[in-house]
């Protein structure tokens, strides 16, 4: 991965900066007639600096290398579980989804000992429920 990590991220930031400047900011920032600093001044100048820095990085990358692809894939799997968890929580609520998310994560990390699984999947969510709903009188997501 020598030299390439910075080139990849530099290209991305170059593209992001240009996209912001030409597409996103003109469409999602209102213009005003008066005032001292227009709403798009700050984002516009920042997006140009971002694009410039991205370009510079492509030409002058450092020796930085990222972790392996396998590690990225594993993280993607965890992120998928968490995303699905948030979506499911919006449908069924924390009380049902929280333990399921905890179970999935613990199994993925490799936990197989029943006592720890029970502690993480049953005891911990129950404790959170007790503290938030019973003690604090607030609602769980």
């Amino acid at each position: 991965m020598r030299f390439t990590a910075d080139r990849v991220s530099g290209t991305l930031f170059l593209a992001l900066g240009l996209a912001l400047y030409f597409l996103i900011i003109p469409n999602y920032v209102e213009s005003v007639t008066d005032g001292n600093i227009s709403p798009d001044m700050m984002p516009n100048s920042l997006s140009l600096i971002l694009a410039l820095c991205g370009a510079l990085l492509v030409f002058k990358p450092t020796l930085h290398s990222t972790q392996t692809m396998r590690s990225f894939a594993i993280t993607a799997a965890y992120v998928f579980i968490l995303t699905a968890g948030i979506y499911a929580m919006s449908l069924f609520g924390f009380v049902y989804v929280g333990p399921a998310v905890a179970l999935a994560i613990m199994l993925m990390i490799g936990e197989r000992r029943p006592i720890w699984l029970v502690a993480g999947v049953v005891a911990m969510p129950a404790l959170i429920w007790f503290l938030v709903v019973q003690v604090l009188g607030r609602a769980l997501p």
């Binding site: 905890a102 490799g110 936990e111 959170i128 607030r138 769980l140 997501p141």
Partner: peptide
Amino acid sequence: PESIIFSSALLLCFVGVAMATSGL
């Protein structure tokens, strides 16, 4: 073990951030 620490920390962050901001 990391397994229980991480899963619990994630649940707590979910609940804590939901309480501190506009929910989910």
